[in-house]
Nucleic acid binder design. Structure first.
Lengths: 235, 235
DNA sequence: ACAAAAGTGTTGCACTTACACCCATGC
DNA sequence: GCATGGGTGTAAGTGCAACACTTTTGT
């Protein structure tokens, strides 16, 4: 087998930033490492890429190992290559962020890891440069969600407009006018009103909506402008 | 030295998509490889990362080796990891796109490579998955340039509004109304009118403008909406 | 004087914002 | 019957798109 000569080969890992939404706050799924290095520390879910898989496959595999979930929204957003980022051995990492419906996550799927949800603003310190990766992921998520309908991935298949608005408000750390918000969201044509209501959070109850799959796939890449004054809110 | 055991180490390369603008068309700087593998084929400029450099440093070094330029606009946009993308040996590549003032490029800086500018729509076939990387880069460039003032990096320090408009038109493969275009661009406050004119392309001559550095740095990350109907033009 | 490109203003429309009241229900 | 959250409409302002004529100057 021919190989390139005189070059250093390096470990390549994939790390996943897993976002979830509990109805009120944005959360991150972190793992408590039961193994060296940095045993007993909190970190992002990650792993080395296998010999027969590409990066997306590796990210999906890793996500499944931790959460048991497949078909999750997963997007590559940055590669980190500082030679000193992993003190044990040089590792280049390709970071992905995942958006999951927090209720689909079943605890203790993996016994190698103890996983736990943390509020974004109440996170433990993380190993290596994971803190920095999380910051990048947050920024990227805000950026992308301002223009593309990705936040639905954080909600269950049926959700209410107040729930959706709370999600946007959590992500942008601000408040929106509910009349304008509902008009803007509904005008995209992405939502289908359901006949039933969610009555858990009010006496009157709020109508459920679900995604119009066809429109959703069509408009996913379109430029939709989901938030007012993006100029002010996006770094 | 402690290392992670049982993991495969992989080559990591950086590839640069180098965009230039000749006043009329968007171009790409490609190299004719004088070495194996794929000797005598056209490819993107790339190289393996060094043991002491991070990804950005590697990209800057590689760009300098080919063009002699430093301080160039360079942005990481995607990592490619298909195990079969390089037939010689598995290589993960991190792709960057660079924007340079085409007139700053001096030929034959490197004798390892023969470099040549190609019209984007008139490119030779490229090695490996470089074609795909170029497609991704074009998409990313369009996307980013719709919201951020990056295209100035493709022009000389002094340029005219008609030149700038031609650039935007080349990138989006469409035409804009010059009255609306000039109003929109000038309203950003990013440009400073110069006292002199460029008289090469008309009898009347067009005023030069230069970047207002302070405003440019301030507003670089802002959301500016440089093109009409982004919905229609951005994939 | 004519050709060729630069420069400039206005109007209508669409979208966005700001804002306040009624509705349905469980207790 | 009242408290709680859900749902809706309107008016003013802003930003965007469409559109045509004048200016300059080299030949």
């Amino acid at each position: 087998m021919i190989r390139y000569s005189g070059q250093t080969r390096i470990l390549v890992a994939v790390d996943c930033i897993i976002f979830g939404f509990d109805g009120e706050h944005l959360k991150l799924l972190l793992i408590h490492r039961g193994f060296e290095p940095e045993k007993e520390q909190w970190s992002l879910m990650g792993g080395f890429i296998g010999t027969e898989e590409d990066l997306d496959q590796a990210a999906n595999r890793i996500l499944k190992e931790l959460t048991g979930l497949e078909g999750v929204y997963l997007e590559q957003f940055h590669a980190m290559g500082d030679p000193k980022r992993d003190p044990i051995e040089r590792t280049v990492c390709v970071a992905y962020f995942a958006l999951i419906d927090i209720h689909k996550y079943e605890k203790q799927i993996s016994d190698q890891y103890r996983a736990e949800w943390f509020l974004l603003k109440d996170m433990p310190s993380l190993i290596f440069d994971h803190q920095k990766i999380v910051e990048l992921a947050k920024k990227k998520l805000r950026y992308k969600a301002a223009l593309h309908p990705i936040l639905f991935e954080l909600l269950p298949p049926k959700f209410t407009l107040p729930q959706l608005q709370m999600l946007y408000e959590a992500i942008y750390e601000t408040e929106f006018d509910k009349r304008n918000f509902s008009r803007k969201i509904l005008s995209t044509g992405l939502l289908v009103k359901q006949p039933d209501k969610d009555k858990r959070s009010s006496k009157k109850g709020a109508f459920y909506y679900s995604l119009h799959e066809l429109e959703y796939n069509d408009k996913f890449d379109a430029f939709l402008n989901f938030i007012p004054n993006p100029h002010a809110l996006i770094a």
